[in-house]
Amino acid sequence: MSEESVVKRDVVQGSARGGAVLLVTVGILEVLQGLSAIAKDEVIVTGIDYTYQFDLTAWGWTHLVLGAIVTAAGIALFTGAAWARVTAMVICAVSILVNFLWLPYYPMWAITIIALNAVVIWAVSTWHPDKDRVAQPNPPAR
């Protein structure tokens, strides 16, 4: 096995593990965002005329449930299972959509989560676990 293939394998595995860590982080941020909305925190702007305006408590529960699902998908992603990768990409796409609709309430928080979700989608979609399983050379016989 060449040194170049070892480096490529390590970079790919690192980006996949990094994607899993980021996904868990995004899930925790979503949960915190949901708790802030449920508690009707003062940092969240209310009273705007917005097409997708819901009750702040409804938004809070939406983010709380989505955060729990995102966190669970991030934990499952550590296994490297194909279904976890697909689930992570789908749930990140849903999270991007929800946070786009949430933009008028807390723009910087929503943009941060959208950007993190985009990075997770990139990391998970570029990870090929079957290419990671490069045959290790046999140890020398004694």
Rank of each mutant, 00 (worst) to 15 (best):
E42W: 01
L23N: 11
D49W: 04
Q13D: 13
L29C: 14
D10C: 05
V31N: 05
D55N: 15
E30K: 01
V11G: 06
L32P: 14
F54A: 09
L23I: 04
V45D: 06
D55F: 14
Y52I: 03
V24C: 06
L35H: 00
R9D: 12
T51I: 15
S15R: 15
I28P: 05
T46S: 11
A16G: 10
T51Y: 06
S15G: 06
L35Y: 02
G19W: 00
T51W: 12
E30F: 11
L29P: 14
V21N: 09
G18N: 09
Q13E: 15
V45P: 08
I48M: 09
S15V: 06
G18M: 03
E30W: 06
Y50K: 04
R17G: 04
R17K: 08
S36R: 07
V24K: 01
Y50M: 08
D49Y: 10
A20D: 03
I44A: 02
D10Y: 13
V12G: 13
D10H: 11
V24I: 14
G27S: 09
V12N: 10
L23W: 01
V26E: 05
V43I: 10
G18E: 00
K40I: 06
A37M: 09
A16E: 08
Y52K: 05
L23R: 04
D41F: 02
A20P: 00
K40R: 12
R17H: 12
G27M: 00
D49I: 11
V11T: 14
L22W: 03
Q53R: 13
S36N: 10
A39D: 14
Q13Y: 09
E42M: 06
V11W: 06
I44S: 02
A16R: 07
V43Q: 04
D41A: 11
Y50N: 08
V31Y: 02
E30S: 07
S36E: 06
Q53E: 12
Y52S: 07
D49M: 13
G19P: 07
F54H: 06
